[in-house]
């Protein structure tokens, strides 16, 4: 252990408990695990997204991609949805 680490341990009162670190890491990794357990999950989400978006936009369903991605500190739903045009509904 580096000296700095030791000093940090002794003086830093606000150090996070290692179990809280563990819990937070677990929480994040499980969001991803649970979602990818079945690709059915993503596919179902994708279909529902398409259904809703179709009401408003003309989209390229072939090129559409939806994924859960782990970022530094969170899990993000990343969707790439090429838009071809707007539907008239918008102007009503």
């Amino acid at each position: 252990m580096a000296l700095l680490d030791i000093l940090n341990r002794i003086f830093a009162k606000e150090t996070v408990n290692s179990k809280d670190v563990a819990k937070e890491r677990l929480r994040l990794v499980l969001v991803h695990d649970r979602a990818s357990v079945s690709s059915d999950f993503i596919n179902a989400l994708k279909e529902d997204l398409i259904k809703v978006i179709r009401e408003y936009l003309e989209i390229d369903e072939e090129q559409l991609s939806v994924n859960l991605e782990n970022e530094d500190n969170s899990v993000a739903l990343i969707a790439n949805i090429p838009v071809r045009g707007f539907k008239k509904v918008v102007n009503e």
Binding site: N17, K19, K23, L26, L30
Partner: peptide, 14 residues
């Protein structure tokens, strides 16, 4: 107790 191992509640929570 000293926060270096997940406790019962932490695990049940998850």
């Amino acid at each position: 107790k000293r926060g270096d191992m997940m406790d019962i509640d932490d695990i049940l929570d998850i």
